[in-house]
Structures are given as structure tokens and as C-alpha cells.
Nucleic acid binder design. Structure first.
Lengths: 221, 221
DNA sequence: GTCATCATGTAAGCCGTTACATGATTGC
DNA sequence: GCAATCATGTAACGGCTTACATGATGAC
């Protein structure tokens, strides 16, 4: 009886993963989501903000309002340079600061439970291409062993797909486009599997790689 | 003028595409959806049946209950090839001694407006990988010129993605997984573009569609 | 007569979309 | 003071999922 935990959403994974690197507010988050590799997530604000609210309610992130104060010196119109630098005002636990009329930026930070949740999402074995790309993008936040689990699980899923495709007896598939599509799919699967093998190989001797998700981190909340 | 039509759903495309080949009832449709190339659509009945109801309401399909009555005076204006041997009960391993289904299998057939809608969905240029795979799968239902439009539109989209990826200045990408992912994505994009080029080539003098398109397995592992 | 499979549906709830509404900051 | 951009939300709507409910058929 493991915890059921809510179903994984791609957006949740992406948000938590991005917040591992920087504290961000919604608007900036949307930009970074769109820049994610593999045909980025183009969410609308109408889904992003409710998602952040859900994450906050679930305790995965904590938000701090910046009520029109400290601003960094450099304008930085730049593409994807992250100037956060604005989280210093924090130090106490959640302080409402809900003054109506003075809406500030709301900067989100991942919490310790949020990190646990992220690990869970990264290890989720739902067979979803889009989600898997994201899992690789954030793979550095896993410990090497978990990472290997994640990669080899995926490898097995792709191999299974390949087996199913190969075992297809080509029934009435006289359609040239269907044929070409299946062939192309199989070639893609083979390539993806090879890529995963390479990643797995390169992870074998990585015992201390990147910054690892560590639930014992303190000082957050 | 943009399309006043409803937003395209992957499922709608898949259903209409499948119904071009055979008249089917929901249960069978679900099985075939799962078999579609490229990580098939695993819809649940709870979404399939409402979807069929919507399609029927929209006039894209017509349904006939198989309960020993209501022999359909098929509307079929015969605009396109109706190669379907309508309402045959496919004999499986066991011989159907009786009409099964008193309360009724509901067999769906695509209508003429449904064909128009399918064409619209096939030509829809929404940048969606899953949907595009389906469009190729049903590409034979387009006229060669439309097919070329569809393929080259997609080609341009992928080329654009590739351009964006290449133009990325590699900012703080010291992360090996992010790097590997981007590299892999670019390689995949290149492969896909090459594949589209091959499809386009094979469609150039394709006036009757069928004998060209000789896919060559490129360096299978 | 009962079980597995075939077959069709409904209901509650979440999630995402578009469209709408508001406010804050910066540059001219 | 005005526009563009930054920034955060709400509301209406619809689709998809899970879980539930129903019923028929054929095998044993």
C-alpha cells in the first residue's frame, strides 16, 4: 500500500524542476517553461497560476510576495539570464502580506516536501514521452542510482514498444504511409534506446554527480 | 479568417481516420486506437463514448444500432470511395450463430461532413507531435497536393525548432543531461526532417499513390 | 448458473484553455 | 500622461480520467 499520491502532471514536474535551480515568479516561470528542450511547455497563465496555487496548497512550494520594494540594479532585458536575487527578504515563515491593492511579484521557492514530490515525479514510470524528456532534463537532481533506475525503466518501455511493433504481422497494411510511419517509429525507438544506453554508460562511474536531491536540507521552512 | 471550427482533438482525428477504413463500434474502436502506430491512443470508455456522441451530434458520424432493426438507408452520397462492406459482423474464431446484441452494438460510420472535417484536421497545422504522427498515418486520405502541403508545413515547423535550438547560446548549460538531451533532440529533429523529405520526394510524381515510396532502413542496429 | 468477455454508458472531479479584468513599472 | 511590458489573477467552458452501473453472450 504505497501512497497513492496525486496523478503526475507534466506541468507540475516542470515547475518543480525549474524551481530547483532558481526561485522564480510566475511570469518568469512561463518563459522558462517555453524554453525547455523538446518542444517546450506552452502553458497559459490561466493554467499556470492555478497550478502554482495548487502546489502551494500542497506544500510543495512556498511563495513570498514582493510588495514593491528592492529591485536589482541591472535592467537585464536579456533572453534567459536569471536574475532572481530577490529572495533575501525572506527568513520567517509564511507571512501573509495580503494587502489588497498592492500586488507584488510572488516569488516561489521549492520546499523540502516539494523536493520529495519532485523525486517521486522523476521516478514515476508513466510511459509518457513528453514527461520523460523533462525527467532527463532534471536528471541531475536525482541520485545516480535513482537516475539509473529511471533510465533503464524507460529503456525497457521503449524496448517493449519495439517488440510490439516488430511482432505486428503487417495485416492489411498496404498503405505506404502507414508502412513508412511504422518503420520510422521503429528507427526512432532504436535510436532512443541507443541514446539511453549511452546515458546509462556515462552514469555508471558517476558516484557524485551534480547537486543531488537531499531531503535533509534545512533552513527552508 | 481563422477557422470557426472547434479546436482539434487528437482523439477526434484518430476516430475519423479509423472510420475511413471500416465502420466500427466503440469497443472495437478502442482496440484499434490502442494499436495505432506511435504509442497508440489509450483512451478510456469514459472519454470514448462521449467523444462519439459529440461526433454524432456534430454530424461527422452516423450511428446505427445493431439490434435486428433499422437497416440504415445509408446516406452515403458517394463522393468518395466507399470501400466498406457495411455492417458485416466479422466472424472471429467462433461462428456467430446469432445476432449478438439485442440492446445494440452501435456501429459508427463516417459521413460526408465527417470527411470534410477529417480533411480539415489533417491539414491543421497545430504543432503537435502526436497529432502529426496520426496525420501521416491517415495521409492516404488526402489528395497528393494537400499531402504535400501537410508534410512541408511540418517540415518547416521542425526546421524552425531546430533553428531555435541551434541559436541557443548555451548559457549555463553545464548540466550534462541537459546538454545530452538537447543534442539528442537536435539529432531527432534532423532525422525527422530527412524522413519528411523522403516522404515528400516519394509524393512528387505520385499521381495514383501506391507504388512509389520505397523506404530504406537506414543503418538499423 | 455463473464467469469472462463483449458492449455501452453516466457522474464527479481535475486540469487546461481562452477570454477577461486588474494593477505595477518603465520609458518617452 | 500614456503606452508597452511586466505581473497576477478569475470565470466560463470543455475534455479526459477514474469509478461506477448496466446488460448481453457464450463457454463450461
Amino acid at each position: 500500500m504505497s501512497r497513492p499520491s496525486k496523478p503526475a502532471s507534466v506541468m507540475e514536474l516542470a515547475i518543480l524542476g525549474l524551481l530547483m535551480d532558481d526561485d522564480l515568479h510566475g511570469y518568469e516561470l512561463k518563459k522558462r517553461l517555453a524554453e525547455l528542450p523538446g518542444a517546450g511547455i506552452n502553458v497559459s497563465f490561466g493554467s499556470l497560476y492555478p497550478a502554482l496555487a495548487r502546489l502551494e496548497r500542497a506544500g510543495s512550494v512556498s511563495a513570498v510576495r514582493q510588495s514593491g520594494a528592492v529591485s536589482p540594479a541591472s535592467p537585464m532585458t536579456g533572453a534567459l539570464s536569471g536574475e532572481l536575487a530577490a529572495f533575501r527578504s525572506r527568513g520567517r515563515t509564511t507571512e501573509p502580506t495580503r494587502e489588497r491593492g498592492r500586488r507584488g511579484k510572488k516569488v516561489y521557492r521549492i520546499t523540502v516536501p516539494g523536493r520529495v514530490r519532485l523525486t517521486e515525479l522523476l521516478l514515476d514510470d508513466t510511459d509518457d514521452d513528453r514527461a520523460f524528456n523533462l525527467r532527463v532534463a532534471f536528471a541531475s537532481h536525482l541520485e545516480p542510482e535513482q537516475r539509473r533506475t529511471m533510465l533503464s525503466t524507460r529503456r525497457e518501455q521503449l524496448a517493449e514498444r519495439l517488440r510490439e511493433l516488430s511482432a505486428r504481422p503487417t495485416p492489411s497494411k498496404s498503405d505506404p504511409f502507414l508502412l513508412s510511419l511504422e518503420e520510422h517509429d521503429m528507427a526512432s525507438l532504436n535510436r532512443d534506446i541507443t541514446w539511453l544506453d549511452a546515458l546509462l554508460d556515462s552514469t555508471i562511474d558517476d558516484n557524485e554527480q551534480g547537486d543531488v536531491l537531499n531531503p535533509t536540507t534545512t533552513g527552508g521552512t
